[in-house]
């Protein structure tokens, strides 16, 4: 397994996609956070949670990276070379998910703490100390959320194998479906509270960006939602790996 992790680390580090995505995720997230904090003014109470306003953006970029690391391998044929080298397939695919996940976690932590640091710099007067579990989750929680999101991308990539299709599905799902579901009368809210990225947002506790809704009592607490989100991401990864092992390469 150490060997395979090294293989996937070499693969990831020797193409540009990872560097581009990392750079875009960090710069765009922090840039948006800076705009948000910078224009907040006095009438807006800046908190640890709202300092993370830009984090969903970087999360989406890591989702894209997760899809790309798989679909480009299928596109360029290196997936076949990989399966030639490791014919049982599953270990090397799990190694890939692990490596991309670790990178994503690092980016997530950088975005989380970077956003907080930025907020402290721009608004030295605001109450931005990390007090209690909720504050820590809001900032350090970006690590696991980014990790799982990238893993989800890997799963989608393995299932769909095509770059355009994989990206379209991943982005339409995360950016469109979850926002539109609330428009469904009566049952929309009930579905919404079980959607994966709503769950991720509940875990980090960032309510910026999700529509202010009277959702009433939520079915899970933040940690429950975290576990639920993790479950969905890992399930998709498992489905992806399972299909890739069975299918002709």
């Amino acid at each position: 397994m150490i060997t395979l992790l090294a293989v996937e680390r070499i693969k990831l580090a020797t193409t540009q996609a990872a560097w581009w995505c990392t750079a875009i995720a960090v710069v765009a997230s922090l840039g948006f956070a800076a705009l948000f904090v910078g224009f907040a003014g006095d009438d807006f109470a800046l908190t640890v949670g709202s300092s993370q306003a830009g984090a969903t953006f970087g999360r989406t970029v890591l989702l894209v990276l997760g899809v790309l690391v798989v679909t480009t391998e299928y596109h360029w044929g290196t997936a076949r070379t990989t399966f030639q080298a490791v014919p049982s397939r599953a270990p090397v695919l799990l190694a890939k998910a692990t490596v991309v996940g670790i990178l994503a976690a690092v980016v997530g932590l950088a975005v989380g703490f970077g956003s907080l640091g930025l907020a402290m710099l721009l608004e030295p007067g605001a109450e931005l100390a990390l007090d209690g579990a909720a504050d820590w989750r809001a900032v350090a929680g970006q690590g696991p959320v980014y990790l799982l999101t990238a893993v989800l991308g890997v799963g989608i990539g393995l299932l769909l194998r095509n770059t355009a299709l994989g990206l379209a599905v991943a982005l339409v799902w995360t950016q469109l479906v979850e926002g539109l579901v609330v428009l469904i009368p009566t049952i929309g809210d009930d579905i919404y509270v079980w959607l994966p990225f709503f769950a991720a947002s509940q875990f980090v506790g960032s309510d910026v960006g999700s529509p202010a809704l009277g959702l009433g009592e939520l079915p899970l607490g933040p940690l429950g939602y975290g576990a639920y989100f993790a479950g969905i991401c890992l399930l998709l990864l498992a489905a992806g790996v399972w299909t890739a092992v069975r299918r002709d390469a």
């Binding site: 306003a53 969903t56 953006f57 989406t60 970029v61 894209v64 950016q175 926002g179 910026v208």
Partner: peptide, 15 residues
């Protein structure tokens, strides 16, 4: 997709 589906909405959130 990120622009049409996300960026415009994010911008509206800037105070």
């Amino acid at each position: 997709l990120i622009y049409t589906l996300a960026v415009e909405d994010l911008v509206s959130l800037i105070p």
